[in-house]
């Protein structure tokens, strides 16, 4: 029972963090595509901005690890 709840908790932590990252990356990605269409030179910076919200996902993943491996 407890193990199951922990697994669900880890899943929710990771899933919701991924959802948040997805929303953020969706918006940024759309903007980046627009900018790159104007000028290809912004590709590098664009990818970089696109990767910024991934921190949120990392937090989710870290939490999931902490829960799942019972640290």
């Amino acid at each position: 029972m407890e193990a199951g709840l922990v697994a669900i908790g880890a899943g929710i932590a990771l899933g919701l963090a991924a959802l948040g990252t997805g929303i953020a990356q969706g918006n940024i990605g759309a903007a980046v595509v627009g900018v790159v269409a104007e000028d290809k030179k912004f590709m590098g910076r664009g990818i970089f901005f696109f990767a910024l919200p991934e921190t949120i996902l990392i937090f989710g993943l870290a939490l999931a690890f902490l829960l799942y491996f019972k640290i």
């Binding site: 991934e54 921190t55 990392i58 937090f59 993943l61 870290a62």
Partner: peptide, 12 residues
């Protein structure tokens, strides 16, 4: 604190 946690991406 969030900067420190941010490095967990290396593992992740």
């Amino acid at each position: 604190l969030s900067s420190i946690m941010s490095y967990i991406r290396l593992a992740a």
